[in-house]
Amino acid sequence: MNLTLYVWRQKNADDKGRMETYAAKNISTHMSFLEMLDVVNEDLIEQGIEPIAFDHDCREGICGMCSLVVNGRPHGPEKATTICQLHMRHFKEGDKIYIEPWRAKAFAVVKDLVVDRSALDRIMAAGGFVSVNTGGVPDGNSIPISKVDADTAMDAAACIGCGACVASCKNASAMLFVAAKVSQFASLPQGKVEASRRVRAMIDQMDVEGFGNCTNFQECEAACPKEISIKFIAKMNREYLKSSVAPSKG
């Protein structure tokens, strides 16, 4: 299969950047999208052109490192699929494919398709944890948790922090990411203790980082490779309202 790629090339953060056109030749339908880029890069190296830089790590859809906007859609056209798990059988001979980095003020381009997502780490550092300041490891199952609550927390915790929600949002808002993290803790007794302070700390950090605001477009849910529901955004809004009206001491 032969394809035409339009790829964003940018030397470094200060470079203006531009789209470049490359031919992807003899691509097997069994390859993943990233393997296809590996093949293109080998071609580029042989031609003496700098290979395309892109983020990747586990290549099995669980680490949240890969981050390509393919034909305007973060992680490409398949539902619930990271770009590393997208296979070339979803494309056909002669396809034109646009490959761009995550676009957001809070995610500066480092090089080509690699962006700096440390803003998400700083939101986590602001409140995405449970404070356990002393004592040994608590016994497993010492705090009974209902199946419903455990499942809700697990659904939220499925977030791999890739930032596709930000990339897909018309406002580059990080609400789905923050909502997943806030809800994951707020659904469990261990996390409820600090729920009030947590939601405010994480939202404040989100605002400081320069992410946009939520317009309830629902684009994030469609782009999320882990299918995190926007119901968690409603949950976060409830948590925020609760913490504003009646902040707990925790």
């Binding site: 957001a104 003020k105 684009e219």
Partner: peptide, 22 residues
């Protein structure tokens, strides 16, 4: 603020779930 959050737009822009009215 929302406009400022994405200073560089996508070359290829698509709408998946968002409605025209939104």
């Amino acid at each position: 603020e929302n406009k400022a959050s994405r200073p560089i737009p996508y070359v290829k822009e698509v709408n998946v779930e968002s409605t025209f009215s939104s």
